[in-house]
Each structure stands twice: as C-alpha cells, then as structure tokens.
Amino acid sequence: MSHRMEKRINELRDAISNYSPGSTFRIARDRPTEPPIALRIGLFGPTGVGKSALINSMNYATGPMWENRAPEGFASEASKTLARNAFPMTEKITMVDNRGMRSLGGPFMVELGHQIAGVYNDEQSVEWDHGFLRRVVAGLERTFRAKVDCEIHCAVLVISALNLSLRATDLTELIEQIKSMTGHPPIVIITHRRHHEVREEVITAFRTGLQQQRIDYVYELENYTTDDHGYDAEKHLVLLEALYQCAIVGDKVMKYKESNQGCTIL
C-alpha cells in the first residue's frame, strides 16, 4: 500500500468518524439550522446485488475489524433481507438496507417511493411496464406535494456489474423524481466489479448513460464477504470515498429541505 493511499484512508476515516449532520459544509452559516440526529442513507436495488455485503464492507472500512452484521445473499439465491434494517456506521451515520427487488421496475419504484416519500407499498407483485412506471412517478409527485416525511437523506442505487442488462435511460424518471424531492440525484454503486465475467464495454456504456443522466457520483467496487475479507487497501479506499460522498450529498439534501418546499426531514 502506497503512503499516499494510506494517508487518504486515514483522512477519510477521521472525517467519517467526526461527521455530524451538516458538518461537511465548511462555513457554519451554510449548514442546516435544525439538522437531524443522524444521516440516513438508503440502499436500493434488485435482489443479489450485494446491498447487505456493502453494509458489512462499509462497516469494515470504518471500523477496526470485519463483522458479519447484515446477512449476505448471492446473485443466484433469494434475497436474505426480508425487511428494512438500519445499521449504524457511526453514531451519526446510519445505512438502511431494503428487501431486494426482483427487477428495477415497478416493485423497485414502489419501495423507493415508500422510503423517500411514504408511498404505500401493498407488497403485491407488479410486472414491469411503462404504464405502471408512469403511475408510480405520478404517485411520487402527488406525495411530494403533500409534504410527507422523508425517511432518508441520501439515496444509493446498488447495481451489480454482472447484471447490467438494464440501460441507464431506464432510470430517467426515477432519477428525476429523486432530484425533485431531495434536490439531488442518487449516488450509484456498481458491485462485483472484479468478477471475471464482467465485460468492460458494458460497464463503459452504462457509465456513459449515467453521465447523460447527470449522475455525478458512480463508484465501482468489490465488496468484502464472509469468505473473503482480507484487508485490501483499494477496496477500503473506494468504500470510504463513497461513504463520505453520501455524507456530503446528505448534508446538501438537509439544507435543500430547509430552503425549499418539500417533505420534512425526520
């Protein structure tokens, strides 16, 4: 591990450890006047992309040792997460895991809406189609106007590099609705990046599509797992960079809510 990489890892660990809501603003008057007790980061994505493994990996990167806190599943198995679970990374940062969606279609939208704006999730299986997608987006717009409570401050879309059959343009309406409700687009994390079956041209095309959607922050990483959690400086660095960026985005959302009409941060 290079000295520069070690220094950056330590800097990020200190920044995350010392973080409190609003503190990423350097000037005190720019910070939210009534920040929440803790930053809440919501992870969303289909089944098997590694949301729970990401939580464990983030916890490992910020802490002294590996812990299997969130139950891990695999792309070929059913999701291990049966309900929303909150996992504190620090006293002031919490990550919220969610049930894996079978696809990035209707059910995914409903769950995301429920988390961000309190949209009712009836737990029924809904087939992906454009008409349903439009109805959910319209529902989010109605909920946004109703000024309900937001449960998260930063939305993170987790997508596996092994399953990039979806195009970035499929996420257009979802991204736009998140931006209209929070003032900021979601962060995207692409997992399983080092897998031998990953095709570079597919990754490149997907990232290009995200750039066209004005997604500023995309992180490609390989999670630590129960079977493979030997320290890797490159893994640690990407995980910490992504987590700290979540804090920066979350602070912007908190401030946005104070100066714009919208849902109230809990």
Results as ranks from 00 to 15, higher is better:
Glu201Phe: 08
Glu201Gln: 12
Arg207Lys: 11
Val198Gln: 06
Asn223Ala: 10
Tyr217Thr: 02
Thr204Ala: 08
Asp216Met: 03
Gln211His: 05
Ala242Asp: 14
Phe206Cys: 10
Thr226Ser: 12
His236Ser: 13
Leu221Cys: 09
Gln213Asn: 13
Thr225Val: 02
Cys246Ala: 10
Tyr244Lys: 09
Val238Thr: 14
Ala242His: 13
Glu220Thr: 06
Val249Thr: 15
Leu221Val: 09
Glu241Gln: 15
His236Pro: 00
Tyr224Asp: 04
Leu239Glu: 12
Leu210Met: 15
Thr225Glu: 02
Gly209Phe: 04
Ala233Gln: 08
His229Ile: 07
Ile203His: 00
Tyr231Ile: 13
Ile203Arg: 01
Arg207Val: 02
Val202Tyr: 01
Thr226Arg: 14
Val198Trp: 07
Ile248Thr: 08
Tyr244Leu: 05
Glu241Tyr: 04
Glu222Val: 00
Glu222Met: 02
Leu243Gln: 07
Leu240Asn: 09
Gln245Trp: 02
Leu221Gly: 04
Gly230Tyr: 06
Leu221Asn: 02
Tyr224Asn: 06
Tyr219Met: 07
Glu201Arg: 11
Gly250Trp: 12
Tyr244Ser: 03
Arg194Trp: 01
Ile215His: 07
Arg207Asp: 03
Gln211Arg: 12
Tyr244Gly: 02
Val198Ile: 10
Arg199Gln: 15
Gln213Arg: 14
Glu200Thr: 10
Phe206Ala: 09
Glu220Trp: 01
Tyr217Asp: 12
Ala247Glu: 04
Lys235Ile: 05
Arg194Pro: 00
Ile215Leu: 04
Tyr224Val: 07
Glu200Trp: 01
Arg194Asn: 14
His236Trp: 00
Gly230Arg: 10
Tyr217Glu: 10
Ala242Tyr: 14
Asn223Ile: 11
Tyr231His: 15
Arg199Glu: 15
Tyr244Phe: 15
Glu220Gln: 11
Leu243Ile: 13
Asn223Met: 10
Ile215Val: 11
Ile203Ser: 01
Leu243Val: 08
Arg194Glu: 15
Asp227Ser: 11
Glu234Thr: 10
Arg194Lys: 13
Gln213Trp: 03
His195Gln: 08
Phe206Asn: 09
Arg214Ala: 07
Asp227Pro: 00
Gln245Cys: 13
Glu200Ser: 10
Leu221Pro: 06
Leu240Gln: 08
Glu200Gly: 03
Asp228Trp: 01
Arg194Val: 04
Tyr224Thr: 06
Gln213Phe: 03
Arg214Thr: 06
Leu239Trp: 08
Ala242Trp: 14
Tyr231Trp: 14
Ala247Ile: 00
Arg207Ala: 00
Asp227Phe: 04
His229Pro: 12
Ala247Leu: 01
Asp227Ile: 00
Tyr231Leu: 13
Leu240Asp: 09
Cys246Asn: 04
Gly250Gln: 11
Gly230His: 12
Gln245Val: 04
Gln212Phe: 01
Glu201Asn: 13
Glu241Ile: 06
His195Phe: 07
Ala242Gln: 13
Leu237Gln: 13
Leu237Phe: 03
Leu221Ile: 11
Ile203Met: 11
Thr226Leu: 11
Glu234Lys: 13
Tyr224Phe: 15
Glu197Thr: 05
Ala247Tyr: 00
Tyr244Arg: 12
His195Asn: 15
Glu200Leu: 05
Asp216Leu: 04
Tyr217Lys: 11
His236Gln: 14
Glu222Asn: 05
Arg207Asn: 05
